[in-house]
């Protein structure tokens, strides 16, 4: 006696077929994932350049064991030049860390030049790596004091190239953001066009159920649920398609972004954990977020499109 099949009159499976929209939204999600990955990679490089090599200042102290010339201000007995320099650096705000290169580190660093001279007993200066807080330019303040204590001290800061690289990374991030914006705009237009086509296909049915007392929110809700689910499905496919490409790119980019040693060879293709370890957590989260974002965008766009279309009915 009871009917088995529920029919709401809108027949949205016919009005909004289940292949066309997911394919288009999936393509958009794929492109958005790649653009977002580019933005995240640029951000990662920028962070590394700003907080890594670019934040290091090198101090060279010739004849480090000689007595310092001015330690009176510190109220101490005259010390060696290197001790005086290290003490001054330790008391300077804005310096987050110092590291005096050991003899082995120094010889390893200078090995090509030492080998050229053929004299392993060549006197070497002491070299100190300074880590400074981002945005701090301590060289201008501390260098005169260091030179007063140890004449001939040299200070090298690589902020010029790191600032340029950071600016380049910021530009790449902006381009990635723009690309995501364009992709989202195209996706919204695609959803609007598909929804309007669906509305035209079912305009007789919509007019009828409107006349029978269906509210705008009922009709727009049915359309938005259908489109939102199709867009979510497309987003899942787009993210899944982007995953292998991002894994490959992450493997290629690892030497430039990893703080430690990057693996020289690709992991075994069956070792999923090793591959997933290559992906930065931000990229993984991005892949997780893209499908619901696509679904939500589809749902909201359809709600607005259908409600605007329904305004023509009394």
């Amino acid at each position: 006696m009871a009917r088995q099949r529920y029919h709401d009159g809108l027949a949205l499976r016919q009005a909004l077929p289940g292949r066309f929209l997911p394919f288009l939204v999936g393509s958009m999600a794929f492109l958005a994932a790649l653009a977002l990955a580019g933005g995240i990679a640029a951000h990662s490089l920028s962070q590394r350049w700003t907080h890594g090599a670019g934040a290091v200042t090198t101090v060279q102290v010739p004849s480090p064991a000689d007595p310092a010339t001015a330690t009176a201000a510190m109220g101490q007995m005259p010390a060696t030049r290197i001790d005086a320099v290290l003490a001054t650096l330790a008391a300077t705000p804005g310096i987050t860390g110092t590291h005096r290169l050991g003899d082995a580190e120094l010889r390893a660093l200078l090995a090509p030049w030492i080998e050229q001279t053929g004299d392993p007993s060549l006197p070497l200066p002491a070299v100190i790596e300074l880590h400074t807080a981002p945005g701090q330019d301590v060289a201008a303040n501390v260098l005169p004091r260091l030179q007063a204590q140890a004449p001939g001290v040299l200070m090298e800061h690589d902020s010029v190239w790191s600032d340029r690289l950071a600016a380049l990374a910021a530009s790449l991030q902006a381009c990635a953001g723009l690309a995501v914006l364009v992709v989202m705009t195209v996706a919204v237009c695609v959803v609007m066009a598909a929804t309007r086509a669906g509305l035209l296909t079912r305009r007789q049915a919509i007019g009828l159920i409107h006349a029978l007392g269906a509210t705008d929110s009922y009709i727009s809700g049915r359309f938005a649920t259908r489109v939102g689910l199709l867009a979510l499905w497309g987003g899942v496919w787009g993210s899944m398609l982007a995953l292998p490409m991002l894994l490959a790119l992450s493997h290629l980019a690892a030497p430039f972004t990893a703080m430690g040693d990057a693996p020289a060879t690709a992991p075994d293709w069956r070792d999923l954990h090793a591959w997933m370890a290559l992906l930065p957590s931000a990229l993984l989260w991005m892949l997780v977020v893209v499908p619901p974002a696509a679904g939500l965008t589809g749902w909201a766009t359809t709600q607005l499109t259908v409600r605007a279309w329904l305004r023509r009915l009394p």
């Binding site: 009917r3 529920y6 009159g9 027949a11 007789q204 049915a205 029978l212 007392g213 269906a214």
Partner: peptide, 18 residues
């Protein structure tokens, strides 16, 4: 004003479903 792709039952049931 009947919907041609809906059965007679579904056409008549439509107002109650709304």
């Amino acid at each position: 004003g009947l919907l041609p792709d809906m059965s007679v039952f579904d056409n008549v049931a439509l107002p109650l479903r709304l």
